[in-house]
Simulated scan of single mutants.
Amino acid sequence: MSIRPLSRTDEARAKKIWKICFGDSDAFIEEYFNGIVRYENTLGYYEGRELIADLFMLKFQAKIAGADFETKFLAGCATMPEARKRGLMRELVRNAMLDMRRHGLAVTYLHPFLHDFYRRFGYETVAYVKKGRIIPRPGLENGRTLICSRMDQIPVHGMEAAYCSYIEHYDNAFHRTGGRFSQWLRLLLADGGYAAVSETEEIASYALYYMEDGTADVFELVCPEEKDSGPLLNSIPARTVNYIIPSVNDGDSEEFTMMRILNPVSLLEKVPVCKERFILEIEDDFLGEHYNLKIEKTVGGENKVEETDGKADLSLSIGGLARAAAGAFPAGDKCGEYFPRQTACFFETY
């Protein structure tokens, strides 16, 4: 058995694994492998010469508390049914973490099929959503909305500008750079999805969605104000429209994107803290590491972080640190003495 990056010769097998595990359309899988996959950013588990499990690492630029970080998003983590419950994905994820850290990354993200499964690896939820539903009432929309099902119909640059403007209101989000926005739209349309776009001089809102049996499921709703989303949602030609909006961790919201810290020092140097100085103890059970760090604010705005043997003021697991640094803890949590609460907006799931 061995773990190594996939190569082009593994593509047919990797597509088969994706199809079996996720059930996506052939058109989506083709677009994903042609437009998104970079084989140097993959890992596969091989039994002899046969690929039996794999994962993909997608390059992103994230902002955490407004500070920019190069990162990778884990996607397509899949194991053939006959090879499951052998700890293969655990080994793949561990190797991926170590590889990303060797390349200088401080954090990584994923959107899980089951949050508790990835908590075992040190991931923690840093973004929450709330669900809404409306019965569209045509005629309530103001202005016109363009319903797009092909790339040549879509005003990509206007939508990209709307997205960039939208995420400015959040502390934590992904920048979509280097053509990533267009790739995201191509995946949607290849899979039979739609974009509803407000037709104005400067596009300020849009909704990306799938239709099934008269129900539209909106997975990305970009609108300057939630109260202004009604006209856009009412323009979608469906009997029912389901949608999600970003939320804080308030007890009524649902878990969404997860983050995993790879290098606590690099992260803590850049995120805001509430106290001038404190000692933070961190246990990383999955990678078998322990940190005892003194954190001090500096005049330049970044923090000075160094190892110490002093007594900790706050002890956290590596997952707890992700939640604290991203400000995703509930109101009244002890972490609030040391880190500010923040807002997050992550639409990406692959």
Results as ranks from 00 to 15, higher is better:
Leu114Val: 11
Leu114Cys: 06
His115Pro: 07
His115Glu: 11
His115Ser: 12
His115Gln: 15
Asp116Gly: 11
Phe117Ser: 06
Tyr118Phe: 12
Tyr118Lys: 01
Arg119Gly: 14
Arg119Lys: 12
Arg120Gln: 13
Phe121Val: 09
Phe121Pro: 01
Phe121Lys: 07
Gly122Tyr: 01
Gly122Trp: 03
Gly122Ser: 02
Tyr123Ala: 13
Tyr123Ser: 12
Tyr123Val: 13
Glu124Val: 07
Thr125Met: 02
Val126Pro: 15
Val126Thr: 14
Tyr128Asp: 05
Tyr128Phe: 15
Val129Lys: 14
Val129Trp: 13
Val129Tyr: 15
Lys130Leu: 05
Lys131Glu: 10
Gly132Arg: 09
Arg133Cys: 08
Ile134Thr: 08
Ile135Gln: 12
Arg137Val: 14
Arg137Leu: 11
Pro138Asn: 15
Gly139Glu: 09
Leu140Tyr: 05
Leu140Phe: 06
Leu140Cys: 04
Leu140Trp: 06
Asn142Ser: 13
Gly143Val: 14
Gly143Tyr: 14
Arg144Gln: 05
Arg144Tyr: 06
Arg144Lys: 12
Arg144Phe: 07
Thr145Trp: 08
Thr145Ser: 09
Thr145Glu: 01
Leu146Ser: 05
Leu146Met: 11
Leu146Arg: 15
Arg150Gly: 01
Met151Ile: 04
Gln153Lys: 06
Gln153Ser: 14
Gln153Tyr: 05
Gln153His: 09
Gln153Thr: 06
Ile154Pro: 01
Ile154Lys: 04
Pro155Thr: 07
Val156Phe: 00
Val156Ala: 00
Gly158Thr: 13
Met159Lys: 02
Met159Ile: 04
Met159Val: 05
Met159Asp: 05
Glu160Met: 06
Ala161Met: 10
Ala162Leu: 09
Ala162Val: 07
Ala162Met: 05
Ala162Ile: 03
Tyr163Lys: 03
Ser165Val: 00
Ser165Met: 07
Tyr166Ile: 11
Tyr166Cys: 05
Ile167Asp: 06
Ile167Asn: 04
His169Leu: 15
His169Glu: 15
His169Phe: 14
Asp171Glu: 13
His175Ile: 07
Thr177Asn: 02
Thr177Arg: 05
Thr177Met: 05
Gly178Phe: 02
Gly178Val: 00
Gly178Cys: 00
Gly179His: 05
Arg180Gln: 09
Ser182Glu: 10
Ser182Thr: 12
Gln183Asn: 12
Gln183Ser: 14
Gln183Tyr: 04
Gln183Trp: 11
Trp184Cys: 02
Trp184Tyr: 06
Trp184Thr: 00
Leu185Ile: 15
Leu185Glu: 12
Leu185Pro: 13
Leu185Gly: 09
Leu185Thr: 08
Arg186Ala: 02
Arg186Val: 04
Leu187Glu: 06
Leu188Pro: 08
Leu189Asn: 08
Leu189Gly: 03
Leu189Cys: 08
Asp191Ala: 11
Asp191Asn: 15
Gly192Ala: 09
Gly192Lys: 03
Gly193Cys: 03
Gly193Pro: 00
Tyr194Asp: 02
Ala195Trp: 02
Ala195Val: 14
Ala196Arg: 04
Ala196Cys: 10
Ala196Thr: 01
Ala196Met: 10
Val197His: 04
